[in-house]
Simulated scan of single mutants.
Amino acid sequence: MARTIAEIQNEILIEKGKQSSLNGLTDSLSNSKTAIWKLWINIIATAIWVHEKVVEKNALISRPHTLNWYREQALNFHYGMSLDPDSINGMSLIWKDGSYQFDTTDLSEDEIEQAKIIKHCAVSEIDLGTVLKPKKEIEEIFSDYFHNKVGVVFIKVATVKEDKISRIDVPNELFAFKEYIAKIKDAGNQVYITSDQGDNLKLSLNVYIDPLTIYINPKDVEYYQLKSLSRDLNDEEQIKLAAYELALLEEPLDTRNGSLILEKEVFPILDAAKDNLKNIEFNGAFVKTYLVDAVQKATGVKIPILKKVETSWATNPSDDPESLTDVTNIEYFIPNAGYFDMDTLQVEVNYIPYTFYRDKQ
């Protein structure tokens, strides 16, 4: 930020005081506000101030358009405002201080906030070095350059509906946003914009719980234990499991399983898993260890084991959420849409009473 004229004058006066040869400028006459040497200080200070303001403005105008710049512009998009600088009502996109800005002069704070439909945004690009391989022929490089979309800026965006991250599913909203980016982007840059349905996710856990804290119906314990086994079941176990699953058609598992004994509406394990997913930043990675850590802290949990993780892309609501891919062997991954669809989230928990302490008795 440029210094004020007074600040510049003060620094000149401080420097003058360090020069003994200028001590003669302190007599009664020259100490007047209209003394020639003081007028020259004012002129020089004003000239320096003008210079600093020009440099400051040039720095603002020449600000490099980084990936973060694209993100800031996306989050600042105002839906319903014209891209025509001659539009009426002062709601157009105008060129000001070296950048495009929305003129919101006649809008209230609430109206401005409602117009900003982009609530989450992530911007990335593919580096050329990621697709080049040693000893490749030069003619193959350019083919890879375009085929792998190197030089393309990828923008993922989402809005919020009913306190949940959601894709922008109104066609005109996304169309308007793309037009906005096309107008403000750097010349020659290719920009690829997406707003997809959240990815599907299914988690399977074995959780050893404190039976004095978390409710579990005794008739369901053996079923959970059989389901939790990671090894192949023997013939007797397979028969038992098949019998349980057949019986479940008539009498399902107790719906209270996994709830707190003293607060039957609270399911600490399910709540911990959902909170962990909700707290993942947009386009952030799902990390298996973090999920297990979150469940471990839940009330009544003794030993949480993440048995299986399955996921799939979902680009529209008609996609089959059951067509999942097993990604259990991957420690972390980023959802294609940038987030998970909490409405299609499946969390299956085998609740097993923690009774190991009996071995010590």
Rank of each mutant, 00 (worst) to 15 (best):
E56P: 12
N76L: 13
S62H: 00
L60K: 03
A59N: 06
A74N: 03
H51E: 13
Y70K: 04
L60I: 06
V50L: 11
G80S: 06
F77G: 14
N68K: 12
P64K: 06
V55Y: 10
A74S: 14
V55L: 15
A74D: 08
L60A: 04
E52N: 06
A74P: 09
Q73W: 05
V54S: 14
V50R: 10
V54T: 13
K57I: 02
I61Q: 05
N58A: 04
L60H: 01
I61Y: 06
E56K: 03
P64G: 06
V50I: 09
R63V: 01
A59I: 00
H65M: 06
E72M: 00
Y79I: 11
V50T: 04
Q73R: 14
K57M: 08
L75C: 10
P64S: 05
R63E: 02
M81K: 07
R63Q: 04
P64A: 00
N76Q: 12
T66M: 01
E72D: 03
S62F: 00
N76Y: 08
F77Y: 15
L75D: 11
V50K: 11
N58L: 07
F77T: 13
N76G: 07
V54C: 13
L60F: 01
N68I: 09
A74L: 07
N58T: 06
A74W: 02
K57L: 10
Y79Q: 14
G80C: 09
V50G: 04
M81Q: 11
K57G: 09
E56Q: 09
Y70M: 03
H51R: 12
R71F: 07
V55I: 15
W69R: 00
N58P: 08
V54F: 11
L60G: 06
E72G: 03
M81D: 07
L67P: 11
V55E: 14
L60C: 00
E52W: 01
T66P: 11
W69S: 03
Y70V: 07
A74G: 08
H78F: 09
S62K: 00
G80K: 06
M81G: 07
V54G: 13
F77A: 14
